[in-house]
């Protein structure tokens, strides 16, 4: 779920308020969006992808991160390079190459079925 709107990074462009498909944000009194309805967040990361200032962070959990979680610690996330990491991965933003240009996944063959272990505990495919 959305956890962070960075007050220092936000440029008050209102893009996240517009693009959030589940209408999680309200405009705050100072123009910085506030997370008004966190429980409606569907953890789709779209606000992050569209934020031009890398000011948002969506924790990859479908429930709110607990108090004290590193997923709510802006300094930690900045340090770890996670703030804005999705936008970087999909190559959005000035001077970047669109990730779609490279997006060729592996060939998908027949899905593996987990085999039964042998008496020795080894895993071998049938």
């Amino acid at each position: 779920m959305i956890e962070i709107v960075s007050t220092s990074r936000c440029v008050t462009c209102d893009v996240c308020i517009a693009v959030c498909p589940t209408n999680v944000f309200d405009r705050g009194p100072d123009g910085v969006p506030v997370i008004a309805r966190q429980s409606d967040c569907q953890t789709c990361f779209m606000c992050e992808a569209h934020c031009p200032a890398d000011a948002l962070f969506v924790a990859p959990l479908t429930h709110a991160a607990p108090d004290g979680s590193p997923l709510r610690d802006e300094a930690h996330l900045t340090e770890a390079g996670l703030l804005g990491s999705y936008r970087k991965e999909i190559g959005w933003g000035r001077g970047r190459k669109p990730g779609a240009r490279l997006a060729v996944g592996p060939e998908l063959g027949r899905a593996r079925i987990t085999p039964a272990p042998t008496p020795q505990g080894e895993l071998t495919d049938a």
Partner: peptide, 18 residues
Amino acid sequence: QQTQMRIGQPNFFLTFDR
């Protein structure tokens, strides 16, 4: 294949990386 998975579907790794 691991590299191709990341390039093909970056959002798959958001959960794991974070």
